[in-house]
């Protein structure tokens, strides 16, 4: 049974790269353009993990994480941030919002897959 990963990023090219990497490794991937769309998808589909950007229109990554964690569907689903930001204060906020990990862009395919293996198996 393939695992489903939700990818939220406002950059289509970044999204494309992540999704291709994941699909190449046998994951199913769903895309979202911003935090609000991500929240809609995450609460209506069954997802095994979320990879999200921080800076996005309508709802940013932190906002998404807080909202998703507050929903019953959001319990126990790992959220990994993938962002150009590397501010420790932001990372801490992400953790407090319920994210399990933070990766800094640009991402490396092998690294992303390694992380996914450790997060969703």
């Amino acid at each position: 049974m393939s695992r489903t990963v939700l990818v939220a990023d406002d950059s289509p090219s970044v999204r494309r790269m992540i999704v291709l990497t994941l699909r190449g490794a046998g994951y199913a991937a769903i895309e979202a353009e911003n935090g609000q769309e991500a929240l809609d998808v995450a609460t209506t589909h069954s997802v095994d993990a979320v990879i999200t950007d921080q800076n996005m229109p309508r709802l940013d990554g932190l906002g998404f994480a807080r909202a998703f964690r507050a929903r019953p569907e959001g319990r126990g689903v790992p959220i990994v941030f993938l962002s150009t930001e590397s501010d420790p204060a932001l990372r801490e906020q992400a953790r407090a919002a319920g994210a399990i990990g933070w990766m800094v862009k640009p991402f490396d395919q092998a690294k992303l897959l390694d992380v996914m293996r450790r997060v969703v198996g």
Binding site: V77, P78, I79, R95, I100, R118, V119, V120, G121
Partner: peptide, 14 residues
């Protein structure tokens, strides 16, 4: 760990 969606068994597997 579990509340954040972390899975200890994956750490053990690693």
């Amino acid at each position: 760990t579990a509340a954040l969606g972390g899975r200890p068994e994956l750490v053990l597997e690693e």
